[in-house]
Structures are given as C-alpha cells and as structure tokens.
Simulated assay, not measured.
Amino acid sequence: MVSRVLVPMDGSEIAGQALRYALEVHSDAEITVYHVVGTPSMMMGSAVGLALEEDLEATAEERAEPIFDRARDIAAEYTTEIETDIGLGHPTRAIVNRAENYDAIVMGAHGEHSEGIIRSFLVGNIAKTVFERSPIPVTTVR
C-alpha cells in the first residue's frame, strides 16, 4: 500500500499534471510536493545566484513559494491538503536522496521549456535518471 508519495514539481504544466495524477491515484496517501532550488543550466545560473545570497534558506523559500501556491491550488480542487518541502542542489540527487522516506514518486516526464531546448533536455534527463536510480517505484506522467 502506498501511504506517502513524493511529487517533485517545477513550474511546468506537466508537473501540475503529475500532482493531479498523484491526487487521483493515491487519494488516501500523504502527498508531499518537493521543489528543488538551484537547478542546473549550462552556466549554473540560478544555482550560482542562490549561492551568492546571504540568507540561503529564505531565498530558497521565496523561489519555491510560487510552485507551492500552484500546488496548493491544484490540491484544493481535490479538497486535499498537501505537504511541501524544499531541496537544494542538483534535482536528480535531491529527489533520489529524499525518496527513501516515501513509498512512491510521481513526476512529470519533462519540465519547464521556458529556457529553451537545453533546459528541456536536462529536465527530461532528470526524470529518466530518477527513474533509473530511485530505490522506490517512480511513475512518470506525460
């Protein structure tokens, strides 16, 4: 039985679809939306910017809040409350390391496309790598 589900989310529509799927399929489970701050890019743009902040924790929370607001709005459609959690660093490592505390992961097959083809490629690889390395079952949603 699946009692705890981790749903990694970025700002993409497919991440919202993954949360909807988790809420429908695992309606009795505790759902945690997990946003990893400090995503990789060719120049490590947002990760470097985060590292230069004086209050890392406050900045991470500020960057994650729009994602969590959207997740709460989606959960409200199902009259369900969700937990939220923030990770720092490389998304694949953060998600796989967090997985041991859950029974399943539900995530989008691809993430945000707003930063172009390179970002799309990296996020697609994140889902693939999590799928390959996770110690628990992973469902990818398209």
Rank of each mutant, 00 (worst) to 15 (best):
D85V: 05
F68Y: 00
E57N: 03
T79F: 14
I126M: 15
D73E: 09
P135L: 12
E24R: 13
M42Y: 13
E112T: 13
E81V: 01
E57Q: 08
R63S: 05
V123W: 11
P137C: 08
I31A: 05
T92I: 11
A22N: 03
I95K: 10
A109C: 14
A71Q: 11
S134K: 10
M44A: 13
Y102I: 04
P8Q: 12
Y102D: 02
G124R: 04
H113G: 14
G116K: 03
S27M: 11
A22T: 05
T79S: 14
L56D: 01
Y21N: 07
D103K: 07
A58I: 11
F68E: 06
G108L: 07
G38L: 06
A76P: 08
A47Y: 05
M9Y: 00
K128D: 13
L23C: 04
G45R: 10
V2S: 03
I136D: 01
V48Y: 07
A94E: 09
A58M: 05
S27K: 06
A22Q: 03
L52I: 11
M43N: 15
T79G: 15
V138C: 07
S134F: 08
P135D: 06
L52G: 07
T39C: 12
M44T: 12
E115P: 10
E57W: 02
S120I: 12
R142N: 01
I117H: 11
Y102N: 01
L23S: 04
I82M: 04
G45T: 15
V130C: 13
T79K: 12
G89H: 10
K128S: 15
A75N: 00
A109N: 10
T84N: 09
Y78N: 09
G108P: 06
H26P: 08
R72W: 02
G45M: 14
I86T: 11
E132W: 03
G45A: 10
R4I: 03
V106Y: 00
I74H: 00
A104T: 09
F68L: 03
N101A: 13
A51D: 11
T59Q: 10
I31M: 07
T139P: 08
A71Y: 00
S134D: 06
G38D: 04
A60I: 05
G16R: 01
G89C: 06
E100H: 13
G124A: 11
L50T: 10
L56M: 00
I82D: 05
V25N: 07
I136W: 08
T139L: 07
P135H: 09
S46G: 04
I86P: 05
A15M: 04
E62G: 12
A109Q: 10
T139A: 02
V141Y: 02
A60E: 06
A15T: 10
S114T: 07
T92N: 10
I126C: 13
V106F: 01
R98C: 08
T32H: 05
D10W: 02
Y21P: 07
R93K: 14
D85A: 12
T129H: 15
H35G: 05
A60M: 03
G116V: 01
I126K: 14
A15R: 02
H110T: 15
D28K: 01
L23Y: 03
S134W: 05
G111S: 04
P8F: 02
A109H: 15
M107Q: 12
V130K: 13
M42F: 14
I86H: 04
T129D: 15
T79R: 12
S3P: 05
F68T: 00
G87D: 12
